Computed example of a mutant assay.
Amino acid sequence: MKLQKVFLQTACEWTGIPLKENEIDKRAEQLSELFENAASVGLQHWKSRRARTNAET
């Protein structure tokens, strides 16, 4: 999970999206689930959809 955090922080800095220190773990997990399981079937797919909904709100 550490690499996802590094990618998240780098992307947020590069795009100018503010990211609080206490949000890093939560956002890294959400985005990881969103992209890694999007093409899955079954439970993993629904976890990815839920992560997308949570990230958008």
Rank of each mutant, 00 (worst) to 15 (best):
G16A: 05
A39S: 11
F7K: 11
F7Q: 06
K47Y: 11
A11I: 06
A38W: 13
E36W: 14
E33A: 14
L43C: 06
E21S: 06
K47H: 07
E36C: 15
N22C: 05
W14C: 06
E13R: 11
C12I: 02
I17L: 12
L3C: 03
T15S: 12
A11K: 04
E56T: 05
Q4N: 08
W46E: 15
K5S: 04
N37E: 14
H45I: 04
A11V: 07
K26S: 04
A38M: 12
G42Q: 05
A51T: 00
A11W: 03
P18T: 04
A28D: 03
L31Y: 13
T10G: 00
F7H: 10
S48A: 13
P18F: 04
I24R: 00
Q44F: 09
P18K: 12
L8Y: 01
Q4E: 12
E56Y: 12
A28Y: 03
W14L: 13
C12D: 00
R52M: 14
E23L: 01
Q30W: 07
E21Y: 00
T10F: 08
W46T: 14
E29V: 09
T10L: 06
A39I: 02
L19G: 02
A28H: 01
H45N: 14
P18V: 08
M1V: 10
L31C: 06
R52N: 10
Q44E: 15
E33G: 03
S32D: 14
E33C: 13
R27K: 10
A51M: 02
A38I: 13
G42F: 04
Q4S: 09
T10H: 08
Q9I: 05
R27P: 00
L31G: 11
L8S: 02
L31I: 12
L19P: 00
I24T: 02
V41K: 15
S48L: 12
R49D: 08
A28E: 03
A39H: 09
D25E: 13
N37H: 15
F35P: 01
V41Y: 14
L8M: 02
K5P: 01
R49P: 03
A39Q: 09
W14D: 05
E13A: 10
A51D: 00
V6Q: 07
N22P: 00
L19W: 02
E29W: 04
Q4A: 10
